[in-house]
């Protein structure tokens, strides 16, 4: 296996430092997500990839100035939603997770294909109760069309427990 030298193709010294957002409201470099930003993450429907998705959730919440408890809650809620869906996903299918970052709110939609032999998602579980507690709103979408989804909202300021 070769190692690229300094003149290799990895870097040519040109680096995009920043791009001016024409509709940006003068936010600093730390606040990339202006209200309405959408991030979609698609992975194999495998539990081993959920850490990546919850890391994205955590990062988006931190950049959107969520308080520390709300960041923790969102990370855990997204983990729970994804773990629930991966459990019922068809073999070899993908997990699609969309984050809609608004002002003071992140909306999350996670979805998997279940195939024909769909195992219903049970909401009578400890995990689902935890999910309901963590998210400000949570909704299961199971309409028998071969996909199952979970929608949840999390506000930037976590309610004190």
């Amino acid at each position: 296996m070769g190692i690229e030298g300094p003149s290799g193709s990895v870097t040519k010294g040109r680096r995009r430092v920043s791009e001016v957002d024409p509709v940006g409201a003068g936010d600093g470099p730390g606040t990339v997500e202006t209200p309405g930003s959408v991030v979609e993450v698609r992975t194999s429907a495998s539990a081993s990839l959920i850490p990546t998705i919850r890391a994205v959730a955590s990062d988006l919440a931190a950049r959107a100035d969520f308080d520390l408890d709300a960041i923790s809650d969102l990370r855990m809620a997204v983990d729970e939603a994804c773990a629930t869906l991966v459990d019922v996903a068809a073999p070899g299918s993908s997990l699609r997770c969309t984050f809609d970052v608004r002002e003071e709110l992140i909306r999350v939609h996670a979805e998997v294909d279940t195939g024909d032999a769909a195992t219903p998602v049970s909401t009578d579980t400890f995990g689902w109760r935890v999910l309901q507690t963590l998210a400000d709103e949570v909704e299961l979408e199971a309409n028998g069309s071969g996909t199952v989804g979970i929608r949840l909202h999390k506000r930037a300021d976590a309610a004190p427990r």
């Binding site: 855990m76 983990d79 729970e80 773990a83 400890f126 995990g127 935890v130």
Partner: peptide, 9 residues
């Protein structure tokens, strides 16, 4: 660094 509901359980 992270504790999910499965860990809580």
């Amino acid at each position: 660094g992270f504790l999910a509901s499965s860990g809580l359980a």
